[in-house]
């Protein structure tokens, strides 16, 4: 009977640990999402800039 109790305790601990792990993961996922949301917006804006400041206008230009 004692063994059973120990086992139950052990299982509860295990479940608690898993819960904590899940919570950690969720928090991490939220962090990742916040980061991706904000950084992708910046990059999207940068992508919209169509002006190419490196374009070489001398190529093919016969003056």
């Amino acid at each position: 009977q004692i063994m059973e109790e120990v086992e139950i305790n052990e299982r509860q601990k295990q479940a608690q640990l898993e819960d904590e792990k899940k919570q950690n993961e969720t928090a991490q996922n939220e962090d990742t999402r916040d980061f991706v949301d904000s950084s992708s917006k910046i990059v999207e804006r940068a992508l919209h800039e169509t002006y190419d400041f490196m374009k070489d206008y001398t190529i093919g230009a016969e003056v």
Binding site: D31, F35, V36, S39, S40, I42, V43, A46, L47
Partner: peptide, 13 residues
């Protein structure tokens, strides 16, 4: 390369 750094993460495009 467009690189957006943050404390935790970094995005490379």
């Amino acid at each position: 390369l467009m690189i957006a750094p943050d404390k935790e993460y970094l995005m490379i495009v």
